[in-house]
């Protein structure tokens, strides 16, 4: 009798189901019309099937974004699970599009789907990469900008995963401050 080993044929389930979104800046359409859901997945295998199939961020046009969010959370400030939250923001220089962007984005995705931040992973809503002429941006969004402990855990581990030198600081900003800012910079609530 041959007994099948489930390990050999079952896909590896993730803790969460995730949705990958794509934003393309078409000025003739509204912001929400430009945001498209690409696919959802909840296994390691299905993640890679999707990841291997789509363009790397460095190949996207200016004004485009990828967003990976937990299923049920829309990649916008207004979503109930985002509106009290904020983001760890990494601003890249132009050179880093060729050197770091794709690697950083993949590490970000692996941090999310692998639940790399322990208990603090529950605070994670998603991640965003913005491809922009002035410099690309990467961010991890969390659900409550007052959960300092979880936010700091996520920031410290994220920085470590991306091998950012400890003297290079990254900042956490609330969506409330980002959406109501008048200038081009938003104050950091936390830094690591």
């Amino acid at each position: 009798t041959v007994v099948a080993n489930p390990e050999e044929y079952m896909k590896h389930p993730l803790q969460n189901k995730w949705a990958l979104w794509y934003f393309k800046n078409d000025k003739s359409k509204s912001w929400t019309e430009n945001l498209r859901l690409i696919a959802k997945f909840d296994t390691v295998e299905d993640f890679w099937a999707l990841y291997n199939h789509i363009q790397q961020p460095s190949k996207l046009g200016f004004g485009c974004d990828y967003c990976l969010f937990k299923d049920g959370i829309k990649p916008m400030w207004e979503d109930d699970r985002n509106k009290l939250g904020g983001r760890w923001l990494m601003t890249l220089n132009k050179q880093q599009r060729h050197n770091d962007l794709d690697r950083y984005w993949m590490e970000t995705l692996l941090c999310l789907i692998g639940e790399s931040f322990g208990e603090a992973s529950e605070d994670v809503c998603g991640a965003v990469v913005n491809v922009r002429p002035k410099g690309d941006k990467l961010a991890i969004w969390t659900g409550n900008c007052e959960n300092k402990e979880a936010i700091m855990t996520i920031g410290q581990q994220y920085k470590e995963r991306l091998s950012i030198p400890s003297k290079a600081l990254i900042g956490y900003q609330s969506h409330d401050d980002t959406s109501s800012k008048s200038g081009s910079t938003t104050k950091n609530i936390f830094t690591v």
């Binding site: 295998e45 890679w48 692998g114 322990g118 992973s121």
Partner: peptide, 20 residues
Amino acid sequence: GKKQYDREFLLGFQFMAACV
């Protein structure tokens, strides 16, 4: 329990053909 996967584990599946 919580399904946590480290990066090496996840990377190990990148080029495996999906078989299910």
